[in-house]
Nucleic acid binder design. Structure first.
Lengths: 218, 218
DNA sequence: ATTTATTTTTAGGTTTACCTAAATTATATT
DNA sequence: AATATAATTTAGGTAAACCTAAAAATAAAT
């Protein structure tokens, strides 16, 4: 099956939303795609006739098996390109998302298979997200929000939600990277801030707002 | 200035046509783009308002300086990606054109500059065509058709017009590659076939049809 | 210099992917 | 259970990029 760029984007977003939530509401898809509900409805009808989603008017929906396969193909491309951009071209991991959004729509499967090979079949992209293999198999990793980590248990920083420059500046200041070992020592009830230890550095206290944007793998 | 994929394709085709011919007719652009004359007219009006072409209704047209710059940017991207596909991913040089047609529209200039760097600033793509630098400077090379080479003068095979599998099979048989040293020894009047020497191999005779598809640099 | 043929443009339609505003259905509140 | 609120769909419109068929302009041929 062949999909337009737009269809691929919808499929990808539906996939991520249903991973969070089991099923997807049209409104959340609209906000995730930065578009309007009416446009979403139109696309849902098309994806339904293409048997990409299970859909009944006015109800929430999910991807079919074919839809999941399609989503994982796009995600595979996206993450392989991100890996390439960081590890071969020397981009910072926070600068590659937009470029990969374009590259992921280049259609050749031969290209992706050779790229995968050239990169030596990486398992994770620069944000710590797993890269599906050519058959759509993907390492399921739960990204636990830092604030919900069990106390004093070593974990690894796996991804950062907000990747604004302001956020990156903060991360740099605290010396937090993807892959850093992190321990949650205690919560402060008053303002939700937490005490953490990054690698073998002295403990620091970070705000709830910052903490909420950091995800970890146990 | 920002261009759609379609606009970029038109600009690129106009560039190639005006390199051959000085100016471009709507009909030749239509056939080169595999589209209809009416669609071309529409696009010409748009490119004109965007000041990409010098255009007056019913007359032939050419790119403006801005248009040439835009064309060279697309061509630079196309050829750098082709180089990447062949020299890093191991594609055959005849398999990369279509993929590069998609990659050339990825917009990031930072990406292209890093790719160029990563590839160590190649001057020529796998077909022997020169790669414009980031300022749009391009080595002007005249590709002489093999049949018009001066007799017994060493030249280099620079490009192949028809890249069908049938053609590639022939080239393989005669052991002709991009970059091979080639000498034209004589013409046979009867059927237009020619006697050539490739590198230090024994001379061979090739048909006019084959010869017409081979271009050289002196 | 007319007539004929070719090229180019205009007019009017299609598809994809958006949009706003209004109508409909589902959900929440009293 | 009736009503208010929220979510979703429908109706109708726009822009880009294509199309066919007819009209207009240019080039070629008698």
């Amino acid at each position: 099956m062949n999909f337009s760029h737009s269809e691929e984007n919808y499929i990808k977003h539906i996939y991520h939303l249903q991973m969070d939530n089991g099923e997807v509401a049209a409104s959340s898809l609209a906000s995730s795609m930065q578009t309007k509900a009416a446009s979403v409805t139109e696309m849902l009808k098309k994806l339904n006739t293409k048997k990409v989603i299970h859909y009944q008017p006015y109800k929430n929906f999910t991807l079919t098996d074919a839809g999941i396969r399609a989503a994982l193909e796009v995600i595979r491309k996206h993450r392989l390109w991100e890996y390439f951009l960081v590890n071969k071209l020397g981009f910072n991991w926070d600068a590659v998302h937009e470029i990969a959004e374009e590259l992921e729509h280049v259609s050749s499967l031969e290209l992706i298979s050779r790229l995968d090979n050239y990169l030596e079949n990486p398992m994770f992209d620069p944000h710590g997200d797993p890269i599906p293999d050519s058959k759509g198999k993907i390492k399921m990793v739960k990204h636990v929000p830092l604030v919900k980590l069990p106390l004093k248990t070593a974990a690894k920083v796996s991804s950062i939600k907000d990747q604004s420059p302001a956020m990156l500046q903060m991360l740099k200041h605290y010396n937090i990277h993807i892959g850093s070992t992190i321990k949650l020592n205690r919560h402060f009830e008053f303002d939700g801030s937490i005490e953490i230890r990054i690698d073998k550095q002295p403990v620091s206290i970070i705000s709830e707002q910052l903490a909420k944007n950091i995800y970890c793998i146990l």
